[in-house]
Design a protein around this nucleic acid. Structure first.
Lengths: 202, 202
DNA sequence: GTCTATAGCCAGATAGAC
DNA sequence: GTCTATCTGGCTATAGAC
C-alpha cells in the first residue's frame, strides 16, 4: 500500500517536472515552435517516455494550460480572503499577478488561432470547467466593482473580463521591458495603469 | 519598350494577388499554420511558381507585412491632411481604421515570438524603414496630444505607441465579436473606448 | 517505464521539361 | 515563368528490447 503510494508520488513529481518544462517552453516559443524533442531534452528523459505520460503534444500543452488556470484560481482564492478589499483592487491585484507571471516566463500565450490545440482544450472538460470557474469568480468582482462605481457601469462585463485575460498575455510587456528603461515592476504598473485608467488625461 | 512595361505590369498584378492571398491567410491562421501549398492553391498557381516570385515563405510573409505598413502609412497620410483635427482624434482614427482592418480579416497578427519570421523582417531594410517612419509619424501625434493635455503627459510615449500597435492585433476584438451581441462598429468603439478612457468610472 | 531506433508524414524548397 | 514530380529535413508518434 505505501509502496504504491510512494510510486504514485514519484510519478506525480515527474509529471510535474514535465509540465513545468512545457509551461516554460510554451511561454517562450509558443505551441507550434515548441518541439516534443525539446521538452524531452529539457526534462532529461527520452521522448518515448514522455508519451507514456501524455498521449500527444496537445495533451502536454493542455496539462500546462490547466495548471496555469489552477494557479490563477488559487491566486483568486487567496485574494478573495481579504473581504475588506474593494473589488476593483482585487481585479488589479490579479492582473498584476498575471503580468508578473508573464514577465517571469511562466505564462503561455493564449492559443488564439491554433486549431489543433484549441480543439483539444475545448474537448477537455477539466480545462473548460476551470476556465468557467475562473471567469465566474472574476465576473463577480467585475460586477461588484461596477456596482460600487469603480468601473464604468455601461461597459459590458465581458469586455472587462476579456481585456483582463488579454493583459495576462500582453506583448506590450515584453516590448516595454526590452527597451531596458524600466524595471519589471515599472512595466507592470505602467500597463496596469493604462489598462485601468486609460491614456486620456484626467 | 511598351512590351516590357506591359509585362512588368502583369507581373506586378500577379504578385499583388499573391500578397493579397498571403495577407488574408496570415490574418486567418498565422504564419506557422499557413502553408505555402495553401497560398499556391488560393492564388491558383503551382507552388514552384510562387518560388519564382518570392524566395521563401518568410519573404512571402514579409511582403505582406510590408504592404500592411504601406497601407497604414497611407492612412496616416490621409488623416494628416486634416490639419484642424486634434492629435488625439487622429490617433483614435488610425486605431479605428486598424481595428476595422482586423475585423475584415486583413490584419496579419504580429510575429511576436516567431524567430524565423522576426529575423527575416528585421533584416529587411524596406520593412524596418517603413516601420520606423510609421512610428515617427504616430510618435509626433502622441507627443502633440500630450502637449495639448489630451493624453496623460506622464505616460511614456512609447507605451502609447506600443499599445496602439497591440490594439491593431487585439484578440479581444474577435472574442467580443464571436459573442454575436455586437456589430463590428460596436466592437471597435468598445475596445477603442476602453483603450483610451480605461475601465475606471469617470 | 525507460531507453534506442525508426516509421510515417508533412511542409518547404528544388529539378528539369516545356 | 509555369508546370509536374521529387527531394530533403524535421517533427510527431510508435515498436520493441530491457
Amino acid at each position: 500500500m505505501s509502496k504504491v503510494s510512494f510510486r504514485d508520488q514519484v510519478l506525480r513529481v515527474r509529471e510535474d517536472a514535465i509540465v513545468s518544462s512545457v509551461n516554460r517552453l510554451l511561454a517562450e516559443k509558443g505551441f507550434d515552435q515548441m518541439t516534443v524533442d525539446e521538452v524531452a531534452a529539457d526534462v532529461g528523459i527520452a521522448k518515448a517516455s514522455l508519451y507514456k505520460h501524455f498521449v500527444s503534444k496537445e495533451a502536454l500543452a493542455g496539462a500546462a494550460m490547466q495548471r496555469v488556470l489552477d494557479k490563477a484560481l488559487a491566486e483568486v482564492e487567496r485574494l478573495g480572503n481579504d473581504k475588506a478589499a474593494p473589488a476593483d483592487a482585487q481585479l488589479k491585484a490579479v492582473a498584476r499577478w498575471a503580468m508578473h507571471e508573464q514577465l517571469a516566463g511562466e505564462m503561455p500565450s493564449l492559443p488564439t488561432q491554433n486549431s489543433a490545440l484549441r480543439a483539444a482544450l475545448a474537448a477537455s472538460t477539466d480545462y473548460v470547467d476551470r476556465l468557467m470557474q475562473l471567469s465566474e469568480r472574476l465576473g463577480d468582482w467585475i460586477m461588484a466593482a461596477q456596482a460600487a462605481g469603480r468601473i464604468a457601469a455601461d461597459l459590458p462585463p465581458e469586455l472587462v473580463l476579456y481585456t483582463l485575460y488579454a493583459r495576462a498575455c500582453d506583448p506590450v510587456l515584453a516590448v516595454l521591458k526590452s527597451t531596458g528603461k524600466y524595471s519589471d515592476e515599472q512595466v507592470v504598473e505602467l500597463v496596469l495603469r493604462s489598462w485601468f485608467d486609460g491614456l486620456a488625461a484626467r
